[in-house]
């Protein structure tokens, strides 16, 4: 199962990707799924199992994110 981390800003998404990769969490930037958000740009896809760990890393770095949602694909 995959999950996506949604952000208000694509700048925050890129920052998050950078920090997650530095912490060896497998992640990928993907287009924001339209059914999850009306934002332009991209979000970060992770393994759903890494959700809590990713959330802790983002919080520790004060990286604002909107939500983490399970994602099966469109």
């Amino acid at each position: 199962m995959k999950a996506v981390i949604l952000f208000n800003s694509t700048n925050h998404a890129i920052w998050a990707e950078n920090e997650l990769k530095e912490n060896e969490i497998s992640c990928k930037m993907i287009s924001v799924p339209r059914h999850l958000s009306s934002d332009c740009g991209y979000c970060v896809q992770i393994d759903a199992d890494d959700g809590e760990k990713a959330s802790n890393i983002l919080n520790a770095n004060n990286i604002e994110f909107d939500n983490i949602e399970n994602y099966k694909g469109e």
Partner: peptide, 18 residues
Amino acid sequence: NPGRSGHKLSIEAGHIVF
């Protein structure tokens, strides 16, 4: 153009800005 589209070139441009 970074931050507008989800394709890989847009993401690469986003990496540069970051």
